[in-house]
Design a protein around this nucleic acid. Structure first.
Lengths: 200, 200, 200, 200
DNA sequence: TATGAATGAGTCTTCATTCAT
DNA sequence: TATGAATGAAGACTCATTCAT
């Protein structure tokens, strides 16, 4: 609880001045994402972000017009990173088996994917109510499917995308991990028997 | 603030004194669910719930020890209702085609399912951070799968469950409806070729 | 925090009905004193008292017209007991040495006197602001001094009374106990060289 | 409520905007002490302090992390002032008679000492329950005794300290003033026959 | 350009008290 | 006679945002 980084005299525990700090903007965005992972959209505040970024409170409101703005930019920043990662993930895929293995990893990765999964769901839910964010989710969904679609065709990509989303949510919430074999079978089934590859 | 303007002696418009009011508790729970649909866990407050239930603010805190408590009970109340509905949905299913049609409806129902879908995702996300809610999501997932599993066997039920969840989320977020035929094909594929029914 | 005895549905942990309960009034008074020891005048509430007395909240407001009334009656109840005890304490005193020993015990009794000392100071401080309570402190002071005065004469009694009060407060607040010899010397000095006894 | 009616855009009577306001912190501390004198620890609230300091409510919570924090700092601020005063009081003391006269004044000063005496007892009582405050009372007691001890030696200083405390409390509570001669005799007795002075 | 100070609205929660039964 | 339910007022505290420097 506000141990560190409280602003204002009430708890002025040091933080040396750091004038001239390029990439402060992105440090704040990263901090915002961390807060989102920890506390969700329901729990994000300027103060928490400032504390985590180790910048003064005023710096956050200076760089971002409002909390909603900060949220939108943070999500956009995240989606941008994520999309690149996602694309990179499939560049080496040559065979159907390669693809399956990568998708199984995606679902099973567990704690390491936690951050990504949580942010994804937070964004989805926020977008449900904020049209400004919806543009982002649309573009993200489109991009994800496009990546898959290059390997599987569009219908299968859409199905896969839905299946993966559902499985990841379940994995996130269940205490015991689903057997890897089970995950693989579900993906393989959805993928269908067809060959896979940029030329498919 | 104050859609119906409570609090403060000035402005005593509306709302008759309602001293003896049984089922006030459930009215509050219903109001809480409405607020959750409208504003999410991120936006629920005692005040909004009180206004929507048309009860004084103090009444909400009287019946529920904390906002977290109210949330938990509202979700539990919802899951209880939902589970019953869900089970009822499948009692008449006799053939594979019946099942598919019902599941397609589930995904496509659109605005009418909006409420249910939003509450479901809100609960999932909240459960991610609150272990107390996790018990609820576990039980819910278990029950949903059990219903499906009676018709399809456990593995298929799990896959279907994930697929449906993903498709519903996407349906919720996308502006244009996916063609019904597409949804049906995805479900049919996941269901596999096997027969369906209590004896399957 | 309100673990036990919370009233109202929010935390309705059992407490069997106990119709017809004579001396409920005094049970409530005793509970009020316990709360005063624990949390002070600053922290007493109907609810805490009810919880500690294991009676319904309504019972407290039923038996006592207001919290101030409860407070006043609790203090009066306490002073009554205390005065009797105090008088009893000195009935056996025959010599100057007896008296000194008893007074040293009074100051040094430590934790066992904690309750009494705390209540005494709470009452004194409350009386500072509430004239209704002042009658009580006057009477108490008068009675205490009268008891001592029978053995020492009025001037010495007043001095002793002040000294004891100060020493008890200090004992209450300091971490290490003052040497018994020190306490004895201070009392002996204030008592003066004169003989002691009902006939003094 | 609201002596000076803050909060709420309606009713913006009085109080000029005072953006830059150094020593606001100490104004708040002084206001807190005034509230403590008037209503005690039991009655202090952010609102009362804000009203008395003539600052907005938010300003109090901005400068002090919690009410307990405000209380602690206010008491510390008071003890600091008080200790200095107390020391100054005895710098001129040359003879036993000087010392006695000053101490008698201390006890008898009546209404003018009211503030000091009340704050002292409030602090003592609060310290009984809050270890953080206990550090303050220890230091205060130590300092007071040290000042006396320079003139009387340590044992006598401790006795005097207790006697004074008790007498002041009684003076505070009784309606009629004790004869000055009585007070003087008690102090003289406790002081003993010895000479007094820095060299004593 | 940055930022510490400031503030008003609103949040959850507690509570004395009232009242219908 | 008791008491569970109810409620309005107020409490501590948080926070988005504004502003002077």
């Amino acid at each position: 609880m506000g141990t560190s980084g409280r602003q204002g005299p009430a708890g002025a525990e040091g933080r040396r001045a750091r004038r001239h700090d390029p990439q402060r903007r992105t440090r704040i965005l990263d901090a915002a994402l961390e807060v989102l992972v920890a506390d969700g959209v329901a729990g994000i505040t300027h103060r928490k972000v400032a504390a985590r970024a180790d910048v003064p409170l005023g710096s956050v409101t200076y760089h971002f017009a409002s909390l909603a703005d900060l949220l939108a930019q943070a999500f956009a920043w995240y989606v941008g990173q994520r999309t690149a990662e996602y694309e990179a993930l499939f560049t080496e895929v040559a065979t159907r088996a390669d693809l399956i293995e990568i998708l199984v990893d995606l679902v099973q990765a567990g704690p390491s994917r936690h951050r990504g999964a949580v942010l994804g769901f937070e964004l989805h839910l926020a977008a449900l109510r904020d049209p400004a964010l919806r543009a982002l989710t649309h573009e993200w969904t489109r991009a994800s499917r496009a990546v898959l679609a290059r390997l599987t065709g569009p219908e299968t990509a859409a199905r896969l995308d839905a299946l993966l989303e559902g499985m990841i949510m379940h994995a996130l919430l269940s205490t015991e991990r689903e057997p890897r074999e089970e995950t693989r079978a579900a993906i393989a089934q959805t993928l269908g028997p067809a060959a896979v590859g940029p030329g498919a």
